[in-house]
Design a protein around this nucleic acid. Structure first.
Lengths: 142, 142
DNA sequence: CTGTATGCAAAACGTTTGCAACAGC
DNA sequence: GCTGTTGCAAACGTTTTGCATACAG
């Protein structure tokens, strides 16, 4: 519920029924790390004739606009994270693949010494922690 | 040149011509962040009848054995990093996609507060910096 | 009215699988 | 000789593309 649509309209984003539905799915606040196909599924529930291609197009644009974060936790399908406005990291369960947003102490960007990034124009960092979640520990770790 | 083969033999790894070639490609020291397909290409240069499936199998095993790191910098093809024995991070150019190994100051794992990983059995962290490399800055950034 | 977004279906891409033949130990 | 590995080709899941149509501005 972060007025994604509001912001997009303000940027002169051409608003169609399909785009609205995609934005609403992402903005619904609850299901946070959807794959493109999951987004399509939820979008199609509200607007049955929406095509996969449109969902891919729209997601790609939202990523370019910086409104949505794209990342891949497992090399398979990319996931889309509507929580692009607050810096955060991910904690992925190596058992079930579930993804949690987490927050680290300092600024991860600052961890890279100047000497290592010499000549580069740094833009961002991605940080992904991996581990077994409590549920999977109970089942596997025994 | 880190005696990957030596180590694998020591672990009772069944050594075939194909596996040797794959290990040699990864161990050749120079081309560091190959995709599975690139590995296959280089392997096939030495042993033409090697199949893609075998390369995938072998890479998967090397990853399980902890000898090779698997990561995806772009959501497309996975990349294989033979430098699994020394902790390091990646710096990816958002222009040309080139990948550099970099090293940060502290221990990235320690950056995650206990409260955030409560109940989890942490296993590792991945850290990827993004930015424009000097070449791409010259061409694009103007 | 114009340009852009859409739907469809097909293709591209990376990866996995099933299975018979084969080869290391 | 037993067992695990290989090659092949086909299947798979995800994403991209080309093109004619529809619609927001």
């Amino acid at each position: 519920m972060s007025d994604l649509l509001e912001r997009l309209r303000g940027r002169g984003w051409r608003l169609t029924a399909q785009r609205r539905v995609v934005a609403e799915v992402l903005d619904s606040g609850e299901h946070v790390h959807l794959t493109a196909d999951e987004v399509h599924g939820r979008a199609a529930a509200r607007l049955p004739e929406i095509s996969r291609a449109t969902v891919y197009n729209t997601l790609g644009e939202l990523v370019s606009l910086g409104e949505v974060l794209e990342f891949s936790a497992d090399g398979r399908a990319k996931r889309y994270d509507p929580n692009a406005r607050h810096a955060h990291q991910h904690l992925v369960c190596s058992g079930c693949g579930s993804i949690r947003d987490v927050h680290i102490a300092g600024d991860p960007m600052g961890a890279l010494p100047e000497s290592e990034s010499a000549g580069y124009a740094l833009e961002g960092v991605e940080m992904t922690f991996r581990g077994l979640c409590p549920d999977c520990r109970a089942k596997r770790g025994a």
